[in-house]
Amino acid sequence: MKAPIIEIFSSFQGEGLFIGQRQIFVRFAGCNLNCSYCDTGDSKSEKSGKLMTVDEVVDSINEIITPDCHVVSFTGGEPSLYPDFINEVSKQIDLDILLETNGTLPNNISMIEKLDIVSLDIKLPEHFDGDYDESILINEIKSLNLLMANDITVYCKLVALPSTKINTFREVIEKLSKNISNKNRLQIIIQPSSPLKDWVNSNSHLFEFSEIVGQYFEVSTIPQMHKILNIE
């Protein structure tokens, strides 16, 4: 069994609830979406990755593990395209499993046998250059309800752009609120897009975004810390 891998490396988690924790990142190539703000554009195509076996990935993880690292993050691209491969790697490593996903493939996510943490991106219509497919949010909601029903730790990231419209943002949050089965268990991280200099002199709505989310969910606003530290 092989999968296309862009890179395997150790760094601090730069996004979400576990920001600052040392993790090993396995970045898959290939994605089922084409977000306009993507900061890992080289991972969109499967062809950009190197085909690696399960044993090769496990060996690479074991070579760089350090005493302060307890989590391997499967990221991309979209790692849930490769559930069987993730299952085989997970069986051979003694680390917690974090999945960084767009959440649009709930059937694939349900096939992953060991998940300790899921970081799920909620997409806004303006994240795409073309028409927005309503099934994106529907499937993200399916994934969230599935994960919470299985008692898996899950939180959402929502990338905000300087151009993000209040009404669009509110509409997505309200749909989440109406369709999430256990709102009290879900935290949403508003992530201002990088680079942060793009927010200078912009009509920032970050406080309003936080207030909208706060009506329904626990909320934090956290930028990409690895961009600030200038590390991978």
Rank of each mutant, 00 (worst) to 15 (best):
P4C: 02
I6E: 10
I8F: 02
F9I: 08
S10M: 09
S10G: 13
Q13C: 12
E15F: 05
G16H: 04
F18R: 14
F18I: 14
F25K: 05
F28Q: 07
A29V: 11
C31S: 02
C31G: 03
N32H: 10
C35G: 02
S36N: 10
Y37W: 13
T40N: 01
G41H: 12
D42H: 15
S43M: 02
S43E: 03
S43D: 00
K44G: 03
E46K: 15
K47T: 12
M52S: 11
E56W: 03
E56F: 00
V58D: 14
D59H: 12
S60Y: 02
I61F: 05
N62P: 00
I65T: 08
D68Q: 08
D68M: 00
D68A: 06
F74N: 06
F74M: 00
G77S: 05
G77F: 04
G77E: 06
E78A: 06
P79N: 09
L81Q: 05
P83Q: 09
I86A: 01
I86L: 10
N87I: 02
E88T: 10
K91Y: 08
Q92R: 15
Q92F: 02
I93V: 11
I97C: 04
L98T: 08
L99N: 10
L99C: 05
E100F: 03
T104E: 09
P106M: 04
N107S: 12
N108M: 13
I109P: 00
S110I: 00
S110D: 07
S110K: 11
M111Y: 10
E113D: 04
K114M: 12
K114V: 04
D121L: 00
I122A: 02
K123E: 05
P125L: 07
P125R: 03
E126R: 07
H127A: 07
D131W: 13
D133I: 01
D133M: 09
E134I: 07
S135A: 07
S135E: 15
L137P: 11
L137Q: 01
I138R: 14
N139M: 05
N139Q: 08
S143E: 01
N145C: 11
L146S: 08
I152A: 11
T153K: 13
T153S: 15
Y155K: 03
P162D: 04
K165T: 15
I166N: 14
F169W: 05
F169Y: 08
V172G: 06
I173H: 11
E174W: 12
K175W: 01
L176E: 09
I180F: 04
I180P: 05
N182V: 14
K183G: 06
N184A: 15
Q187V: 13
Q191N: 09
Q191K: 02
P192F: 01
K197R: 13
N201Q: 14
N201C: 13
S204W: 03
S204G: 10
H205W: 03
F207T: 15
E208D: 14
F209M: 03
S210I: 15
E211G: 10
Q215W: 13
Y216H: 12
F217H: 04
T221N: 00
P223H: 06
M225S: 03
M225C: 03
H226I: 04
K227W: 12
K227Y: 13
E232K: 15
